[in-house]
Nucleic acid binder design. Structure first.
Lengths: 338, 338
DNA sequence: TATTGGCACTCTACATCGGTGAGTGCCAGC
DNA sequence: GCTGGCACTCACCGATGTAGAGTGCCAATA
């Protein structure tokens, strides 16, 4: 069992290591913190911490480095819950208030968080599952192609191209639009998909192929909206912290681009909606992201929750970053609810 | 003046250096290429090439490395104009034919090119300047917010949120829609902007604030479409070639994220529409991208030209990459014209 | 005149070696 | 339970030496 003073030592080690990037020795701890005891005593505490797998020595007779488990204890019990500065708060509000639309807002959020934390920022687009269909639009693009646009009541828009194989007159088009909206408008996305089953049967045989292509496109749009999307910024920050990833950035950059893995990890963090959650190093199973921590808080938009967070090396300033993620996610929720 | 054999030596140096990543010596040249002369003769040629600033020796008594100027001669006169393999061609066609819509197509193009060249791929969205307004839609999002959607006849869609400050009834809304389309539909974007001047004067005083907000949003959309957008993929490929950037990826990743610089450079490459153009190392003024080459070809969509290309270290396989960029840009044009 | 073999020279990469310093573990004494 | 002392370990640094790749130059040659 680790004593209170042991935990204080752990806190000191995490703080100093995050700052200096170098293994922390017993002497430097007594120099920088007021423990009122000698290095030898600290060494005894460190031996206990090492037994508990909270810290580790990279090699015999070097200082100690926190393990993932050590960071976990730090995050859960030892990190001071900081709040961001007034200037930072103002910067957040100013920057986000300037956004033009939904897309722009989430991209700005991502950029802002990358700048505040100097890490890679990740913002999840909310699912549209609970959103309602505001309107379905069909537009003639070229002779034999239609564009199908789905507008949700929270402002999100998605589109799909439809190949008709033949011309569609304006009159026929407005018929499709009228019916499709009759079926789907006002319903939630998940309902809309069901409601459109058999859509094509309400049209004369000649129009059925196009009608079923339309209902397929809408189904596809709805399905695509279940798989979430991400806005990512600040990849350049990774080179600053390159050594922390033991020089191998490839899997991290790859994860950022592929997004699938990031999405999965973000979802796993979503349990506790009110707190900023952290997944540290090897806690998430991804071997390529073994040196990375993911931190995320949730925000809500139109009844749907989504995550906003950062990706960085396990050796990061958890206190400051949690405060930033917290502040940004709260303000984002507030903005989307107004 | 450099002799024909001198140029052959330059070609050999570029090819070998690109492959081996190591300065090329006179002996290895005679070993790998059939010059039928001794290393000493090659050394004499190399001395001349060095005088012309086409190659340089990193230090006394090491092999030679091409300079940016050397790469330039190589690209302009010496590179064999390769064509891609049948399998690659099929892969391109298969992958791009599967795209759902405009956005998806350009993103797929970017991914594809990144995979083919193993570099960072950049695809410029075409300007909408010449495109026509297909329709303008206004949608009530919440009580006091409207979403303004601009649909162009080439399938591109953009949106802006409008804060009205008061409720807008459905009747009033359809009035706005009717008029806005009356003014703008069927016109090119640039015309539409002019046509909407004084739009609000056609409404009763009570409706004028909202009307002018709408026309401002449309003007904003048109303006935003003049500043182009990029789809970028394959950033992870940079770590593979990290040493080529003398270990400093920051400015490169930064340029990728900021996009402004990339856009500028792409535009500068646009002069010759039919050929793949290359900007090598310090040729473009950006100090952060001194170790990078940008290669781009143009494609056309709805009368507008835009660029598709790659960003990589100056030490890249120009022949193969030019073939890939060429093939992808041609196929993209073809797909967009059908 | 262009080419070549030979030779001295240069510089990097790599391994070896000893000294220094930071840090540890352990133990006896307070 | 804390502390000072001590022996020990190991990374880091600079100096040193060696091997190898490559060059420039020159005199000889076809």
């Amino acid at each position: 069992m680790v004593s209170q003073r042991g935990l204080d030592v752990l806190r000191a080690i995490v703080q100093d290591y995050v700052e200096s990037r170098e293994p922390v020795g017993s002497k430097s701890i007594v120099d920088r913190h007021n423990f009122g005891v000698s290095p030898a005593t600290i060494r005894n505490e460190m031996a206990l911490l090492e037994e508990e797998n909270l810290i580790v020595a990279p090699h015999t007779s070097s200082g100690r480095v926190p393990t993932d488990k050590g960071y976990r204890i730090f995050v859960d019990h030892l990190a001071d819950t900081r709040t961001i500065s007034g200037a930072q708060r103002q910067a957040i509000e100013k920057f986000l208030d300037e956004s033009h639309d939904y897309d722009d807002l989430l991209q700005r959020t991502s950029r802002l968080l990358a700048q505040l934390t100097r890490q890679v920022a990740v913002v999840e687009y909310p699912s549209l599952g609970g959103a309602k269909v505001q309107r379905i639009e069909l537009v003639n693009i070229s002779n034999d192609r239609l564009l199908c646009i789905l507008i949700a009541d929270n402002g999100r828009i998605d589109q799909r191209m439809i190949e008709c194989g033949r011309d569609v007159s304006e009159g026929e088009l407005s018929e499709y639009i009228l019916r499709a909206n009759g079926f789907a408008a006002g319903r939630s996305l998940s309902e809309a998909q069901g409601a459109l089953a058999g859509f094509e049967n309400h049209f004369p045989p000649g129009a059925q192929p196009v009608a079923s292509a339309i209902s397929a496109a809408i189904a596809d749009l709805v399905a695509a909206n279940r798989t979430h999307k991400l806005a990512v910024s600040g990849a350049a920050n990774l080179v600053r912290t390159e050594e922390d990833f033991s020089g191998n950035l490839y899997p991290v950059l790859d994860a950022i681009e592929e997004q699938v893995v990031l999405l999965k990890l973000m979802c796993e963090l979503a349990e506790d909606a009110n707190q900023v959650a952290v997944s540290i190093g090897s806690e998430h199973g991804e071997s390529g992201l073994r040196g990375a921590s993911l931190m995320a808080g949730s925000y809500s938009s139109g009844g749907e929750n989504a995550m906003v967070g950062i990706l960085g090396p396990t050796r990061m300033d958890y206190s400051a970053n949690m405060a930033a993620v917290q502040a940004v996610s709260r303000y984002l929720s507030k903005l989307l609810h107004s």
